[in-house]
Write a protein that binds this DNA or RNA. Structure first.
Lengths: 212, 212, 212, 212
DNA sequence: TATGAATGAGTTTTCATTCAT
DNA sequence: CATGAATGAAAACTCATTCAT
């Protein structure tokens, strides 16, 4: 949230207050955005939920798009913050990956509305903001890359290091897919089973026991 | 296009004409939607490209959303039509899958703008239209399901038939991901190599040579 | 009006209609602008007088400033059109000037609200529009310049030709001053007497009977 | 400034402080007004230049228009103050007038932005404030009237005393015109030559050597 | 069928002013 | 006295949709 906050100009000087109010704005906006989409949500609605006047909102942002950015950034850092504490891996890479997948996929499940929203509305951001969000996504991916590299080194995984990045993205996408294909997946599977199967598949791909 | 045509009401009686004009409308709209997004494209703009008046557009559709629906449907059937001719599989399931992946992923590459668009704007459709689009997506998936079942039967694939649906979705998503993660994937991989690696991974998952 | 009209883009294709509607818009706007000033007049008010919806106004202009331009241009060409028919001078330069002054000053009197308005709001136009209005003002001035030159040639006026331009501007301004100093002048003088005195003064300046 | 001070109510009791702060406000506002116009300048901007908070500004004025009034008044008294010291005329009326013109026109040149501003924005003042500004303008004019009367008495000028007021206004306007017609005049003349020519013209008008 | 002018509700955004601290 | 966050009315402008021709 910190880095994001700095970029958007505010009329209000008190930085703490800006932080607080922006959090409130995001809180007010996120559900509306998720439910109705960015374009169909009006700033007036957000203000109403925000519990303050429309003028007050515009003291803390410059345009409606700023709110979108704040929301996207909030979602991303929420995911990150939820994931990070679980990511101290003393165990072997295989178990580490298993756990990381479990955590990440669980969080996707919990935050599926938000993940879905990111998929749909990121494109409404301007170039710069979009880049920033992509960067954040890459940071997440790097967590998986690191585990994969460790697994290659210690011999638990058999993939080429050229493929690590792709594999990491595969894992991320296979997780997010639970959100954006929920209309069908969640009819046929429960999250636990979903994680189970996908984990098995992913590990099979990485398995050192076989060549291609 | 057929089923779509049935659902959207038109003032015009002549069914052939409706077909023709709607095709023109889609042709005019699709690029605009892809470039600017659904909400930022105006009906006026579409009419201008369409080469006819706004009034005429509204003879063939009822709302702007109808155009979105026509476009989504068009994209989906374009993909299907491009895929289908390749899908007569006399060969063994393993080769059939290999070929199906190759075809589908190649088409995603060619139509990446459109695929991306579907991901972002489907949510703007109303329930019924959205369902219809999802159904189309499932049809695509079933193609992969069939091959997978065939492979299980003939012993080339070792997965449980409970996992077939999920696996099929995995394949679809791994293909589409080339479009919606292009901002990073296409910096590091070329499409051929991408298909190569992913094919290998997928086949490894399915491989009967190993247990779990 | 012609040249002005061409520059402002309209959504409406029918050029005649554009002409007609714009005339109506100007007619609706001019009094409001004169009475309340440009900034304090809302487009809604203009629409109400215009007798059409606000949407319709925006079919014929792009911005509120366009209306200002249309109005300024209208005022200028009104003055020109009222002046021109009187400006065929067969008589000697002295009488010609006398008559031109009489005509121009009379028109300033009749259109004093408009003249005043131009003085106050021209600056709200953007560079290009402002230039166009200045150009129009110069055209007016040239009429006086021509008469002065003729007077110099035929010996009725004794000023240096270097001073002609300035003298022409003096005459214009001395006329317009009747409008923008009306708060005091019109308390002490009637227009006829005003024209009388100013004419005498101006002619005295030009008199060939004396040196400096 | 004195009379102005009396009219505008302030929350602050300390009269000296009111004087000081208002001078600061004017100093902050005048350039902004001149550059961007009254309506396009925000009170926030003025406050920022003023170096104090918006709240503080509103301790010393009641409305934004009050600032406009203070600024107009400031400009007028600046001109007056700059003119007055030069206006002790022991010499004959002719030389006195020559000098007064020279001084006034020079000051118009120096303060052309401000003069122009007065022409454009005075109308935004309410009736009472506008009257006050007009009064100030008349005071200026009276200086010229006095010289003219003196000239009539001592026989240097030949005009009727009925025409004195008008003549005085002519002189003022011919001076101010250097500001509001600068877009053309300053392309063709330098200020010294401008003063020269205009002085000659004016004196010719007044010359006692001829009748009409 | 085709046209395109007309509509006006609805949107974002601004900014003078207030008032609690 | 000074502050600056909060207010909300009001403004310009857009655009999907209708309907008379």
């Amino acid at each position: 949230m910190d880095r994001a906050t700095k970029k958007i100009k505010s009329q209000v000087k008190n930085k703490e207050l800006v932080e607080i109010r922006r959090r409130e704005i995001v809180k007010a906006a996120v559900d509306l955005f998720v439910k109705k989409g960015f374009h169909k949500t009006t700033v007036r609605e957000i203000a109403r939920r925000f519990g303050m006047s429309i003028g007050t909102i515009y003291e803390y942002i410059r345009t409606k798009e700023d709110i979108l950015y704040l929301v996207c950034d909030y979602i991303h850092s929420s995911v990150s913050e939820r994931v990070k504490p679980f990511l101290t891996f003393d165990e072997n890479a295989r178990d580490a990956l298993r756990r990381a997948i479990n955590i990440y996929f669980s969080i996707v499940d919990e935050m599926q509305d938000y993940i879905l929203f990111l998929y749909q509305e990121t494109k409404s951001l301007d170039r710069e903001a979009r880049k920033y969000i992509f960067r954040a996504e890459e940071h997440m991916t790097e967590i998986f890359e690191k585990i994969l590299y460790r697994g290659i080194e210690d011999g638990s995984f058999s993939i080429s290091s050229d493929d690590v990045k792709l594999m990491a993205h595969n894992i991320m996408v296979l997780g997010q897919m639970w959100a954006f294909r929920r209309w069908v997946l969640q009819k046929h599977y429960k999250i636990d089973r979903y994680i189970d199967i996908q984990t098995r598949f992913i590990l099979k791909q990485l398995d050192s026991k076989l060549g291609v």
